[in-house]
């Protein structure tokens, strides 16, 4: 049962105002997004149609705390097929950002490690202007292990020992992979992050 008295009628506006969330209200619940979704094939509970409906109804808490928010592969199958031009991949990303803001404000606990991964990725990008795989993995694993650098490195080595050796043997993880490749004008990249992310 939906507790109508607990609905947050402003939730749809919150999403609509977030970049990427603009097409939310065009959804007429046809389920095309969910029927063709490769994640829904594997995870039976996964239902983007339902997440959109709950968002439109104002079920803010239920939507933001739904663990399925974090398993979209952004493959764009739903977006490509939506007859109403709802950009579902972008929309779910907008909802994830709202959840992350709530989490940062201490109002929500997110179990998924995806926000940690994305933050670590963007952090590399902000510092170097390009992706530094090794730096990303080190920062991500540190975050996953509660901020402990040592524990993070041990967990990373355990997960990536075989993979690392395999890549090393093929010359894909040689000296070039150990150090970040940087853009020359890092100040231009810093400016982008400062202005867009308000840093």
């Amino acid at each position: 049962m939906i507790k109508t008295w607990e609905l947050d009628l402003n939730f749809r506006n919150e999403i609509l105002n977030e970049p990427g969330g603009a097409h939310l209200s065009a959804c007429f619940q046809c389920s095309t997004c969910t029927i063709g979704c490769p994640i829904a094939e594997i995870v039976p509970s996964y239902n983007p149609r339902k997440i959109i409906q709950m968002s439109l109804l104002g079920m803010r808490e239920e939507v933001l705390s739904n663990p399925d928010l974090w398993i979209c592969a952004i493959c764009q199958t739903c977006t490509a097929r939506c007859p109403q031009d709802v950009r579902i991949s972008d929309l779910l990303a907008a909802i994830r950002r709202i959840a992350e803001k709530d989490a940062e404000a201490g109002k929500l606990k997110i179990d998924s490690v995806r926000p940690l991964f994305e933050k670590a990725f963007l952090h590399q990008l902000e510092k170097y202007g390009r992706l530094f795989d090794m730096g990303l993995a080190m920062e991500f694993y540190k975050g996953k292990e509660g901020g402990s650098f040592i524990k993070g490195q041990l967990a990373m080595m355990k997960d990536f020992k075989d993979f690392g050796m395999r890549m090393f043997k093929k010359g894909k993880m040689g000296p070039k992979a150990m150090f970040p490749e940087k853009v020359k004008k890092t100040e231009e990249i810093k400016k982008i992050f400062e202005k867009v992310e308000g840093k």
């Binding site: 990427g20 972008d90 950002r97 991964f117 992706l131 231009e188 992310e197």
Partner: peptide, 23 residues
Amino acid sequence: EDWNCCGAAEAEDPILVYALNAR
């Protein structure tokens, strides 16, 4: 000359993607 990362699938804010790729 001096190309930068496109943001891949991890930059989820479209404005950030536009800025990185406008460069």
